[in-house]
Amino acid sequence: MNAAVSQSASPVELKPRPEAQAVPEPQTKATPALSFDGVTKRFANRTATPFTAVEGLSFDIAPGEFVSIVGPSGCGKSTVLNMTAGLDRPTEGRVALNGEAVTGPNVHVGFMLQKDLLLPWRSILRNVEFGLEARPIGKAERRERALRELARCRLQDFAHHYPFQLSGGMRQRAALARTLAIQPDVVLLDEPFSALDAQTKLLLQRSFARTIHASGVTTLLITHDLSEAVAMSDRILVMSERPGRIVEEMDLDLPHRDDPIARQALPRAREAIAHLFQSLHLAEREA
């Protein structure tokens, strides 16, 4: 019965809860690369009562923008990702890529998880080709594109290695090459650095920041690491506990988007982290 409402063009009418009004309505200039309009996702559970993962989510991401979503665990960050990738449908509201509603897995989105998800039986080159194999392109072009992405991620010397022969950081770079090889409009990164040791993490963040900056692709990073969000993004969306809502939006306006290590040294970056820390009420909470 909500079908008629969700078809409506005006996002304001869709707001299911008055408190969602607190989120400043983004004034869209061009068509956003990714937009959520009053998106609610409820999961029907056979055993327990159905639970609401996210509620009344509305935000836009401009083409080329790097946006991070931070929030406590279980705030439905991964639900946002799955709905963008078309693996899940919103219960209410609308998810759109370049103005077109997402109805299923599509060619515009590439995603990456904490796990590299490289196929162990394929060489790195064949892994990068994997995403292109569902596309109607020739073998030669596929190989050429895969090699180009490997070069961009500085892995060309490891094209014929197998995943087990690479370090964790290199495997994540290979996964990024595979994600970029399909030339997506939007890249979704779900905690891609959280399984790595502190040093590898810093280096890989820089490596990703450079590669993403150079490719100009729109990026949505989901993370629980506040300093990572500040170091890498243009804008940060803070989500509340379940049901996940956006409780704060933070425009960073900091230099060095292509160098998180340099950015983290800035005093203003530290202020931003402290501010996020407060807005998540981390000081008053217990583990």
Binding site: A85, P105, N106, G110, F111, L113, L119, E133, I182
Partner: peptide, 29 residues
């Protein structure tokens, strides 16, 4: 078999047959 691998293949718009031959079958070796 890791559901995320299957989801990855789904996100790349692979058909059920492609998912079987490119992911599930080799993963079963």
């Amino acid at each position: 078999t890791d559901r995320d691998l299957v989801n990855l293949a789904r996100a790349y718009s692979m058909t059920r047959a492609q998912i079987f031959w490119k992911v599930l079958f080799p993963a079963s070796m």
